[in-house]
Nucleic acid binder design. Structure first.
Length: 756
DNA sequence: GAGTTTGAAACT
DNA sequence: CAGTTTCAAACTC
């Protein structure tokens, strides 16, 4: 494992926070209750934000950001509403030691302290001593610990704060934020089968400790919605099983994968991976979920797609399940997945449908968990050590999971940032990377030097780059290119699609998109990155755009390419070399300008001499920005008042308009031709608006031919020029076609009138 | 598609 | 840090 200098952290923020590169996912603006992350959080996450997306990026809010979150069962129509729910703008914290997942920002201590100040305990969902600590980022949120229930716990039982031993056999719907009553817990495993199959909804109840008494816990709702699609009625395994929490410490405990996610045509797969691809990336638009898996885990993981709405204090984590998810697979995977792997993964689907967050168990640490949270562009994952987690329970049934309030005492050692949600792809068994994207993904995983966790990172695959956060103490960062995930998925040994329980998403764009050179997200996402053509650099130098963008070469034309998983060592070395040479080598070149200057400018400026900075040789021009004072160009014409530039821009605009018009014309013509063919093509079946008869019959063709021939003869007799003759013939042909179409339409109408 | 131009990256 | 070389993309024909 390589640790890069703290400078790496400095380059992360810009890209991370550059939300322009993030694929646009509809995210409703939070109502007044939305909690904004504090800029001060940047201390732990040194990000330079070109756009004020901090809160959104860190937000786990998925389905709704409004104060009131309502989860409705698609089948039964039952709904659970939580008032005062807000976006949970908290990163995840994972405690490998105690299976704790803390959804909180680096400054989780702040939230924890705040919670303590009000006398509240972090809400914990425990399973056999495993805790999920969900805390709001920044100030107002109180940490919530989701502790997995013991197997023997009874369904529907709400856990009070401090009762870490009590176990809930199943997920419960818990409302957090002012509501004292607990939602009825979803039925037991057996019940869940029926209930879930019917309702396709799973609710996770999370009890929140109240400051004064645990009797009236504040609730936040975690609901799981399973897509009925593809769900076989005979399926013996209910989606609820997916949410089952098993004791990781137990050797026979099946790997736990809890997917709280929108399954929107996306597949989430948790694969026991041995590697984590972490590499410094250049652009913010890419976010890759990196899995830190134990090399020893070789069993299948269970994944559960859960729409989760988590309201914590004033913060809310909302996850809605998409309808496209295949619950059948989930159930299957869960039923099949058994105790071999100690991996827990939680996937949370957001409204956007393509976004996921995954918390993956780190290495062999039993406490490591995977969490996928869809719906949030930017995610935070922190790994913390939980000192109070209890792990004695045995996983009873697939449907048993409980949420308890519990103590949170953990040492933060690792922080994982995940942003740029993407459509999940099948994961490889060798890697625990969970998410894939239509857009580029990048995973930044801060790693802390805690000794107990350090061993885990030794299992990271080559290419992993870990960097300590500047002044972050025990917090560091690791950047992983989304491409890594893609490669893992493309690897021959990656075949979890069938076992993942999630349908493999189709049409997923494997090539990550970067807001390269300041291009907008739409620009970068609308067109695929050009394949490189490197011949001598082995794609391991910045000459290679793929490498420079932190991507693996994919479908490129390069020769002797080393920018792939097969040459991880070389790649890592090259990355280090580049970083040694220039710590900001992978930082976006287009950043924010000085005060009063343009919002975007080249970080280093160009050095053009002959192009006048009006050709794409110039990086400024290529990025569609003006040259700035830091440029060293000669004969620059790329400034605001430049007539050459204006002319060029006008020409470019005109050309673009022409292209658009041509495209539209082609589309229209194609549509017309298609429509014509539809009308004239003989159709046996009368469905789909097709004409029931064959109108272009042999007789029609012969008649048309006669007409055309007659027109030709007429032209010849009148000694018309060839061009005129052709025109006449074509004109006649057009008339023939019109008559055919007219006849066809009339015949169809007549047919319809007689109901044929 | 081949060859040229260009400027960033890499090297000295 | 400056000059030179290498490199791959952009551009031209």
């Amino acid at each position: 494992m390589d640790v890069v200098s703290p400078e790496l952290n400095s380059l992360l923020p810009d890209e991370i926070m550059d939300t322009e590169a993030i694929e646009d996912v509809p995210q409703p603006q939070p109502v007044a209750t939305t909690v904004q992350s504090e800029p001060s959080d940047d201390t732990s996450v040194p990000m330079e934000t070109d756009t004020p997306m901090v809160s959104e990026s860190l937000s786990l809010s998925l389905a709704t950001s409004t104060a009131t979150t309502k989860t409705t069962d698609s089948v039964t129509g039952t709904s659970v509403s939580t008032s005062g729910l807000q976006k949970l703008t908290a990163p995840f914290t994972i405690s490998p030691a105690n299976h704790q997942i803390i959804l909180n920002k680096v400054a989780s201590s702040q939230a924890t302290e705040a919670a303590k100040s009000v006398g509240t305990q972090p809400q914990v969902i425990k399973q056999e001593g495993q805790k999920l600590l969900v805390t709001a980022i920044g100030k107002s949120g109180q940490p919530i610990v989701l502790q997995l229930p013991h197997t023997g716990s009874k369904p529907g039982v709400s856990q009070t704060s401090g009762d870490t031993k009590s176990q809930a056999p199943q997920f419960k719907v818990v409302t957090i934020g002012g509501r004292s009553e607990l939602k009825p817990v979803v039925g037991s495993a057996s019940n869940q089968v029926t209930t879930l199959q019917a309702q396709q909804l799973k609710a996770v109840q999370i009890a929140k400790k109240t400051p004064a008494s645990s009797a009236a816990p504040i609730k936040f709702i975690i609901t799981k919605t399973v897509n009925s699609k593809g769900l076989s009625p005979q399926t013996s395994v209910p989606p609820v099983i997916a949410g089952r929490v098993l004791t990781q410490n137990s050797p026979v405990i099946p790997p736990r994968t809890i997917t709280l996610s929108e399954t929107h045509n996306t597949s989430i797969q948790s694969i026991p991976g041995k590697k984590i691809a972490i590499s410094p990336l250049k652009t913010p638009s890419k976010v890759t979920v990196v899995s830190v898996a134990s090399p020893t885990s070789n069993t299948s993981q269970k994944s559960v797609a859960l729409p989760v709405n988590v309201a914590l204090g004033q913060q809310i984590l909302t996850v809605q399940q998409s309808t496209s998810a295949s619950p059948v697979k989930v159930a299957t995977s869960q039923s099949t997945a058994q105790s071999i792997k100690p991996v827990q993964s939680v996937a949370v689907g957001g409204v956007g449908g393509s976004q996921f967050k995954t918390i993956i168990p780190l290495a062999t640490q039993p406490n490591v968990q995977q969490i996928q949270v869809p719906g949030s562009r930017f995610h935070y994952v922190r790994l913390v050590t939980a000192t109070t987690a209890s792990s004695t329970g045995q996983p009873s049934g697939p449907s048993t999971s409980s949420i308890q309030t519990g103590d949170l005492s953990a040492d933060i050692f690792t922080v994982v940032f995940i942003w740029q949600m993407v459509a999940p792809k099948p994961l490889t068994s060798a890697a625990q990377v969970v998410t894939t994207t239509q857009t580029q993904q990048r995973l930044i995983m801060p790693a802390t030097p805690l000794p107990q966790i350090q061993p885990n990172f030794t299992n990271l695959p080559p290419g992993t780059v870990l960097a300590p956060a500047p002044g972050g103490g025990n917090v560091g960062y690791a950047v992983v290119p989304a491409q890594y995930v893609t490669q893992l998925q493309q690897s021959p040994f990656v075949t979890l699609a069938s076992s993942s329980g999630f349908p493999a998403s189709t049409g997923i764009q494997t090539q990550a998109r970067l807001p390269l050179n300041g291009l907008s997200t739409a620009e970068t996402t609308s067109r695929p990155r050009k394949p490189c053509n490197c011949t001598k650099s082995q794609c391991l130098k910045l000459y290679c755009d793929c490498f420079a963008n932190g991507e693996f070469c994919n479908n490129c034309n390069c020769n002797n390419c080393f920018n792939n998983l097969e040459h991880e060592t070389e790649r890592l070395k090259a990355i280090k070399t580049c970083l040694d040479r220039n710590p900001e080598a992978f930082k976006p070149k287009i950043g924010k300008g000085k005060e009063g200057e343009s919002d975007r400018r080249h970080s280093k400026g160009c050095n053009c001499k002959r192009s006048g900075c009006l050709k794409n040789y110039c990086e400024c021009y290529e990025a569609k920005i003006m040259c700035s004072s830091i440029c060293k160009c000669i004969g620059c014409k790329n400034f605001e008042e430049s007539p050459e530039r204006k002319t060029l821009m006008h020409l470019a605009d005109a050309a673009e308009v022409r292209v658009q018009q041509q495209t539209a014309a082609k589309t229209k013509l194609s549509s017309q031709i298609s429509d014509l063919l539809m009308r004239t093509t003989p159709v046996i079946s009368s469905g789909g608006g097709r004409l029931p008869y064959t109108f272009v019959t042999k007789e029609v063709l012969e008649a048309t031919y006669e007409c055309l021939l007659e027109q030709a003869k007429k032209a010849e007799q009148t000694h018309q020029p060839q061009a005129e003759a052709e025109r006449m013939i074509l004109e006649e042909f057009g008339h023939c076609l019109m008559r055919i179409i007219s006849s066809a339409g009339k015949a169809k109408a007549d047919c319809a009138s007689i109901n044929c």
